[in-house]
Amino acid sequence: MTRKDKIKQFKTTFFSRGIISYLAVGFIALFLIAAIFAPILTPYKPNDMNLRNSLATPSIKHLLGCDLHGRDVVTRLLYGARVSLVVSVFSCDIGVMMGMALGLIAGYTNGPLSTIIMRYVDVQLAIPPMLFTITIGILVGHSILGLIFALSFGMLPSYIRLMYGLVLSLKQSDYITALKFANVKTSKIIVRHLLPNAFPTMMVTFTMNLGGTIMLESTLSFLGIGIQQPTATWGSMVADGYQYIFDRPMLAFAPGLCLLLVVLAFNIAGDSLRDAIDPRLRGKL
């Protein structure tokens, strides 16, 4: 099979859910464009107040109106996407990489170190993740860096456990056993077989987790323990806007809808990715 065929097959399986998968990818693309090009896409600044526009209704100049402080809602949505993207990508990256490393150590060595890691996982999993993240978030203060730290720390145990299970089952598999019988180096077995075979599952979980993390970040901001005002985040926009839910429904509805769609899009993309990446499903859907 040539490289071209492979890419073609990847596409067919990835988009096997039809219109929904196209919509999901389209929405993720929009989200990325909004986050990256926010300053070009809008003439306003997200934090510029103009009290004459306080609670302005939608118009040509302000497509979704303005909030209490007269800040353009569209602009704040675009900049909010930025925060969501940065926070979720960084915290999931850190979470997944640390989780893979620790899970690999715990699963492959199976010694005292492994026991320590897995006990830590058990302890942290006993605390509700929301509570854990909120506590860490409060401890490290209201900054993007602090939030990333809290979020990645909060998701770490689930990644460790996932990787641990994958490594345990992979290392028992006959094809790894055969390599051991043939004297293939352990480092090669890990790099060429364990990691690549664990990667698809980790990747799928990572993609789905992106949506969940955006949601969690917004929840924290909604509760006022995330990123500090006046930085625009979707969570704090919903929190600010819902006081005017009957007069100016767009203020809370627009960021809420954005959240919903992004989370949904990442989940669908995660599912499609699993189908496309898993060679056992290749060509069957």
């Binding site: 598999s173 006959d174 094809y175 055969a178 077989h193 690549p196 075979n197 060679p279 056992r280």
Partner: peptide, 8 residues
């Protein structure tokens, strides 16, 4: 014969 070959 399924589990003894690396699918990748």
């Amino acid at each position: 014969p399924y589990g003894s070959l690396d699918p990748r």
